[in-house]
Simulated assay, not measured.
Amino acid sequence: MGTIAIVLGTRPEMIKLAPIAGRLGDRARILHTGQHFDDALSSSILSEVSLTEVAALGMVGGRSRGVQIGAALCALDENFAANRPAMVMVQGDTNAALAGALAANARGIPLVHVEAGLRSNDRAMPEEHNRILIDHISDLLCAPTAGNIANLRAEGIASQRIRLTGNTIVEAVWQHLPSAGRRDEILGAHSVKPDAYVLATLHRPENTDDPAALRTIVTELSDIASNSLPVLLSIHPRTRAALVANGLLESLEPVSQLPPLPYGEFLALARHAAVIVSDSGGVQEEVTVLKRPLVVVRRSTERPESLRHFAALVTPGPALGDAVRRTIASAPDLANARCPYGEHATARIVEAVNELLARTAAA
């Protein structure tokens, strides 16, 4: 049926696309744009999720959005010209995904968008523009939820291009969550006990590039660590640079500062945290599988499904600390709350891909 070029550039794409690449087997050709190039966010994650045959196209990370997209687009266009795939697949809303989508469109190659139809309705988010552009030029839109499908139909995208598939994050979490015994070892290594600590991550520009927002988040996390429960903060390279530039590392002293964690180790800590604090889109999905409460530090979200049972949306400020302390005090029981992101997404996506390839070959 031909080769399927899977374009990725960031840690979340690696995690979510790995199950699909595994099912496609030799038909998958992995192309890495280098948007994430730090070892903890790239090569070690590729190894952990068993993406071993990967073609690196360069290193665009750390550059402006326009340069990232432009450089990746040029590299992908050259790659597609030299070795044209039967189809291109991208995931989510990253600069790498937009570059892959534009490169496929420019060469007239069928395009699949995994995780289509997410909308925050916040035009200040670069990712919102990326995901809208990708959706409107894709030939197959794999939507995780019925709400995502409604978003696409509201924008006039033809129903025959859309498939309800669920999200591969569900399978990825179950595949990489360590055993109970191994989780006990990981918690012990971090000197924490189940339901008695806060796990935090922070990386989005709206928080790291705004000194006032970053200072407020640091203040709230440090206060929680000093007065409520231990706080483990996994620090993204972008965040560490911002903390240093704004002289905030010293203010984080009460907080346990960790590097970006291997995926399995992060899941183990997330599974037993009293509450998680994060601005990550992926974490909003993972908590629905792990059945843990989350405070989302953002002004908007493209994943309202997670807010129904598992997450609260707050902006930086005293509301952040208040939301965390309320969650700690109430200790919500989420064991029976339904994960909104479905099951067997990988099989549904590959089935839809094969159908599109068959139609394309017959045309």
Rank of each mutant, 00 (worst) to 15 (best):
G2Y: 10
T3G: 01
P12A: 09
P12K: 12
S43G: 02
S44W: 02
A55C: 10
L57T: 05
S64K: 10
A71H: 08
L73D: 08
C74F: 12
A75F: 10
R84M: 06
A86M: 08
M89T: 07
A101M: 10
L102T: 10
N105C: 14
A106C: 09
V112Y: 11
V112P: 04
N130P: 02
I134R: 06
D139A: 11
D139G: 14
G147I: 01
G147W: 12
G156N: 10
R161Y: 06
R163K: 13
L177H: 09
P178M: 13
A180G: 10
E185K: 11
L187F: 12
G188E: 05
S191A: 15
D195S: 13
A200C: 08
T201V: 05
L202H: 07
R204F: 01
T216K: 11
E220Q: 15
S228N: 04
I235D: 07
R238I: 12
L248E: 03
S251W: 02
L252V: 02
P260K: 06
P260I: 10
G264I: 02
D279P: 08
E286M: 00
E286V: 01
S300C: 00
R303I: 03
R308Y: 06
F310I: 14
L313F: 00
P318I: 05
A319T: 09
L320G: 05
A331Y: 02
C339R: 01
C339G: 07
G342F: 07
T346I: 09
V350Y: 11
V353Y: 14
R359W: 10
